Measured scan of single mutants.
Amino acid sequence: KRPVSAMFIFSEEKRRQLQEERPELSESELTRLLARMWNDLSEKKKAKYKAREAALKAQSER
């Protein structure tokens, strides 16, 4: 099983909040919005998710 990506971790963290704030969005619209949010995120903020990705990857390799 492959470890999850930093973007996937970000998306899972933000998805529920966005669904509550924007219930009119379809699943595909929500996914596009999350992708745009990820792309607009600064490298400094992405680092938090990339660190979690690395930790999960290291854990799965044990």
Rank of each mutant, 00 (worst) to 15 (best):
L30D: 01
E61M: 15
K45S: 13
L34Y: 00
I9G: 02
L41H: 00
A35Q: 14
F10E: 00
E13Q: 07
K45R: 11
T31E: 11
L34W: 00
A6E: 05
M37P: 00
K50S: 07
R32M: 08
A35Y: 02
D40S: 08
A6N: 04
L33G: 03
S26K: 01
L30M: 12
A58R: 12
E61W: 07
S5D: 13
R22W: 07
A51L: 12
K14I: 09
P23Q: 03
F8N: 15
L41A: 06
S42F: 00
L56T: 15
F10N: 01
M37K: 03
A35T: 15
L33H: 13
I9N: 04
L41D: 01
E53N: 02
Q59D: 14
E27A: 07
E20F: 14
E20Q: 14
E24G: 10
P23A: 03
E61V: 10
N39R: 11
E12C: 05
E21I: 08
E12W: 03
S60Q: 12
K14A: 11
L56R: 08
L30E: 04
A6H: 01
E20G: 11
K14Q: 11
E29L: 03
S28W: 07
S28V: 09
Y49N: 00
R15E: 03
E29R: 01
L25A: 08
K44C: 07
R32A: 13
R15W: 03
T31I: 03
L41W: 00
K44N: 01
F10P: 01
A51I: 06
L33D: 06
K44Q: 11
A51Q: 11
A54D: 15
V4N: 08
R16D: 03
T31A: 12
P3F: 13
R32W: 07
S11C: 08
R2V: 12
P3A: 07
K50H: 12
S28Q: 10
Q17V: 14
R2N: 14
L56A: 13
K14N: 09
R36Q: 09
L34I: 10
L41T: 03
S28N: 11
E20W: 06
S60R: 11
D40N: 03
R52N: 03
S11A: 10
E13I: 05
Q19S: 13
K1E: 07
R52M: 09
R15G: 06
S26T: 06
L18Y: 11
R36E: 09
R32C: 05
E29K: 04
A58T: 11
Q17S: 14
R22M: 09
S26N: 08
D40F: 07
P3Q: 14
L25F: 02
